[in-house]
Design a protein around this nucleic acid. Sequence first.
RNA 1: UGGCCCCUAGUGUAACGGCAGCACGACUGACUCUGGAUCAGUUAGUCAAGGUUCGAAUCCUUGGGGGCCAGCCA
Length: 584
Amino acid sequence: MNAPHERDKTDDQGRLRPGESDASGATSARNLNFIEQIIEDDLKSNKWQGRVQTRFPPEPNGYLHIGHAKSICLNFGLAARYGGQCNLRFDDTNPTKEEDEYVTSIQEDVRWLGFDWEDRIYYASDYFPQLYAWAVQLIKQGQAYVCDLTAEETRAYRGTLTEPGRNSPYRDRSVKENLDLFERMRAGEFADGQRTLRAKIDMASPNLNLRDPVMYRILHATHHRTGDQWCIYPMYDFTHGQSDSIERITHSICTLEFENHRPLYDWYCNALGIYHPQQIEFARLNLTYTVMSKRKLLTLVKEGRVSGWDDPRMPTIRGLRRRGYTPEAIRSFCDRIGVAKFNSTIDMAVLENALREDLNRRAPRALAVLRPLKVVLENYPEDQVEEMEAVNNPEDPSAGTRQLPFSREIYIEQDDFREDPPSKFFRLAPGREVRLRAAYIIKCVGVVKDDQGQIVELRCTYDPESRSGTPAANRKVKGTLHWVSAPHAFRAEVRLFDHLFKVMDPDDVPAGADWHANLNPDSLETLPACCLEPRLADAQPGEHFQFERLGYFTVDPVDSRPGHPVFNRSVSLRDTWAKIEKQG
RNA sequence: UGGCCCCUAGUGUAACGGCAGCACGACUGACUCUGGAUCAGUUAGUCAAGGUUCGAAUCCUUGGGGGCCAGCCA
C-alpha cells in the first residue's frame, strides 16, 4: 500500500475511518504476509463463520513503544482489512507491576496512532471470577492440584532443559482436598508463595511449559482495578487463552517468544472444552541504534540518560510523538516493514524515511539559521526593508505563499561559507556568488575576523537585478542558501537529536562492558538562540515545519510557552553534501 | 549435550512445484531558486550438500547458522 492511498482513507485527524480497510477484501492483489494467508484460508474454509476478531493485549506496566505500534497496526489493520474487529484488552494479572497511569497512557497512544476499539475495552481482571470457576472445573476433572512446594523447590522439581522433572509430592491429592485448599487460598488463609494451584500435565515433557505449570499464585497485593478483592492471581498462561476465548477471538496474534506456550494455550482450551482461538506468533520489531526492552527503556529514564519516557530520543510512542513523528508516518512504517517469523532488525533509516515522506507533503517550509553568521550587504540601502514572497510548500500549491522581510544585514548558516572551499562546494566563498532563497543573488567581497582569527562577519554585495520572481533572476547560480533578516530574526531554542546509541546494535559490546558503553554522548545538542523567520514566533505546540535545507522540525509540546516555541528536529533532510564531504 | 521455531541482495520483505520481484540503503545521471523533492538507471540474493521431480527458494534428509524456553513475569 502506498502512502497516498493510505491518506485517502484517513480523516482530518489522520485516523482510519470506521469501516475503511486497507484493501478491498479477501481477493486483494497485494502480496499477503503469512498471517493474512492464514486468515484468507480460514475465510475460504469458513473456519470462523467469516469472522475476524483480533485483540491488542498490552500489560499496563509501561509505556508503549514503536514495537507495540507494529502489533497495534497488525491487529487493528487485519480487522479493518477483513471487515472484523479488534479489541483493546489489558492483560492485568500481576497487581505488583501494573498501574492505572499506564492504562490511561496506553489508550491515549493507541488512539493517537489512529485506531478505535469503540466500546470493546476489556480487562483480564474482569474475567477473574470466570477464571476461578474454570480453575475449580480443572480441579474437579483431576487436572489441577494445589501444590505446597516453595518457589525454589518447584524450580528444582522442574528439571532442566535436558533432564525431565519429578512429580510434586502433592500431585496426587484428592479432588476434595484440592477444592478445599484452593478455596482457602482464595480466602486468604495462606501467605504469599505458600501454595500454588498447578495444572497436572507432564513433568517429563520436553516443553518446560507443560511441566505442571502454575495456574494461580498467592499475592496479597492491591490490584489497580479489583483492589483487595483477590489475593490469588492467575498466571498469564491460565489467563490469556481463556480471555481470548471469552471475547471470541479468532486469531490471537502474539510475538515469537510465546511459541513454546502455544501447546499450553491449546491444552487449557481443550481441557476446559471452551471456544478455542488460534494463536499465531510473529517476530517482534527490532530497530538499529536503539533498544526496545521495557527494562532498558526504564533504566534510561531512571538513570537520567533521557529526560523521561517522552524524551524525543526514546523509541516510545510518546517520545516519537513529541519528536514530531506523525501517526501516518508510523503506520506507513509498519506497513512497509512486513510481518514474518524471522527475527530481524530494521534499519532506523526506514523509520526516518517514512517520516520524511509524510512531512514532505504536508509541512510548510520556513527559513531558519541554526548557527548564524552575519552578512552585511554593502550596496543595500541602510534602512530599506523589502518583503520577499516565498512559497510555503512546493509539494502543495494550495499552501500558498508568505512574505519574508529582507534587509541590509542578514544571517546565513556558518556551514554555508568556506574561506577556502573544497571542490564540489557550491556555497559561498570569497569572490563567489550564491542565491539567497526567494531573494537576491549575493557575492562575497570580504571577510571580517576577530583577534583569534575567527570569522565574525561577511561583507557582500547584492545584485539589485536578481530579485526572485523577476526575469533577470533566472541566471544560473550554483548554490541557494537559506537566510534570515538580522533585525527581524526571531530567536528561539532548537534541539537536534542523534541516535541514542553510537552503534547499530547496542548489545554488541566489548567483553566486560554492558550496553551503557554504547550510549551516544552526543545524542542531544541544544542550540539556545537560533535565528528564525518572524512568523515562527507564532508556531503552536506539535506544529511541523520544514526548515529549508536542514530538516523537519516540530514545536516541542512540553517545553514551549506561548510566544516562546522550542523546536525539535524530527528528522534531517537527506544531505548529499554531508555525504560527499564525509567521503573526503 | 532436550524441545520448538527460523534462514531469499547491505537491511527488510514477496514469489503458494514453473521467468527470483519490491521497498529502504548504496552508487550513476537528469532536473531543481531547498545539495530537499522528483525522475531515470546501476549494484547486489535463495546457508550448504544430497534426494524427490520434466522442473525446487518452495517438498524430504543431513549438516551449518540463529532465536526462544528451566519466573509463583507477561
